[in-house]
Design a protein around this nucleic acid. Structure first.
Length: 273
DNA sequence: ACCACTACCTGAAGGC
DNA sequence: TGCCTTCAGGTAGTGG
């Protein structure tokens, strides 16, 4: 689930739970996420107060009162659940944070592609995980987007997934943005400039903005023991809709699915060029 | 510098 | 019911 809008939704959901609160316990149940949790993870976080919660691309950043910054990535299957009272951990709840307000935050990640790292404010900007990230999509108007795509001979789809070019998009929102912009996923990335780049920029920002707004409306689900995130997918135009009629034309072929770089691309062959 | 491909790990879904 | 294959929102490492 976690692309930029989902991480932003998690950030907003956790803000009232964490900010200005103290971590009174950090229980590590598994250390082997995508990379091992740092040494002394629990000790370094326990007792700290959370000053701010920010986001960079798909990374969640927890800023603590001693200058420590906890970097969290949700990988493919990372989820966060807030419990108002201590709760029995589920199988894939790998890290549990407890706050001085009595709430517990369970970090759940079945595939363990997520990660947690510790750094500090001083080294945050140059941290290896963050230093090569491209700009946030919200900051990229057409010309700036074109500049990020210039010189790239590979397909547009692949370029948009490259976090060094533009940071925060994943497979779903790339498909959706390309459909909105009426651009072919196979088009050479460097051919997107001028009006096409304007269109793509608007499409990216609108699809992310709408997804965040939809996520925001379901934040209360975080609080509920059985609450699942799952809302915006009902509004996908093409993602996961292979074989269904194209929502904006009657091309007959409907939504197609192909594999690009090992990932599924959903698109309409007639509308997107 | 870029690109295609693979690996990491578990679970869900579909075919037989 | 069960076994097998395929696929899934991410990133990083390899070799061409």
């Amino acid at each position: 689930m976690p692309e930029l809008p989902e991480v932003e939704t998690v950030r907003r959901g956790l803000e009232p739970v964490l900010v200005k609160h103290r971590l009174i316990a950090v229980d590590v149940r598994r250390t082997d996420l995508r990379r091992p949790l740092p040494d002394g993870f629990s000790r370094k976080l326990t007792g700290r107060r959370v000053n701010r919660l920010t986001r960079r691309a798909k990374y969640l950043l927890v800023h603590l009162d001693d200058g420590t910054v906890l970097i969290v990535h949700l990988g493919m299957s990372g989820r966060v659940r807030v419990h108002d009272h201590p709760a029995v951990p589920e199988v894939h709840d790998h890290v549990i944070f407890r706050t001085d307000a009595g709430q517990s935050i369970h970090y759940c990640d079945p595939r363990r592609f997520g990660l947690m790292e510790l750094t500090n404010e001083k080294n945050l900007a140059t941290h290896p995980l963050l230093v090569n990230l491209g700009p946030e999509p919200q900051d990229l108007e057409g010309p700036a987007l074109a500049a990020r795509l210039a010189g790239r001979s590979g397909p547009l789809k692949t370029a948009l997934l490259d976090q060094r070019a533009i940071a925060g998009l994943g497979n779903i929102y790339v498909c959706e943005a390309l459909f909105r912009a009426r651009l072919s996923p196979f088009r050479k990335a460097s051919t997107v400039w001028g009006r096409r780049a304007d269109r793509l920029s608007v499409a990216i920002r609108s699809v992310l903005g709408e997804a965040i707004a939809a996520g925001g409306s379901s934040l209360r689900d975080h609080r509920q023991p059985d609450g699942e995130l799952g809302y915006f997918q009902h509004t996908f135009a093409v993602y996961g809709r292979e074989g269904e009629p194209c929502p904006h034309c009657d091309c007959g072929g409907g939504v197609q699915r192909v594999s690009q770089g090992g990932r599924s691309t959903f698109y309409c062959a007639k509308l997107q060029s």
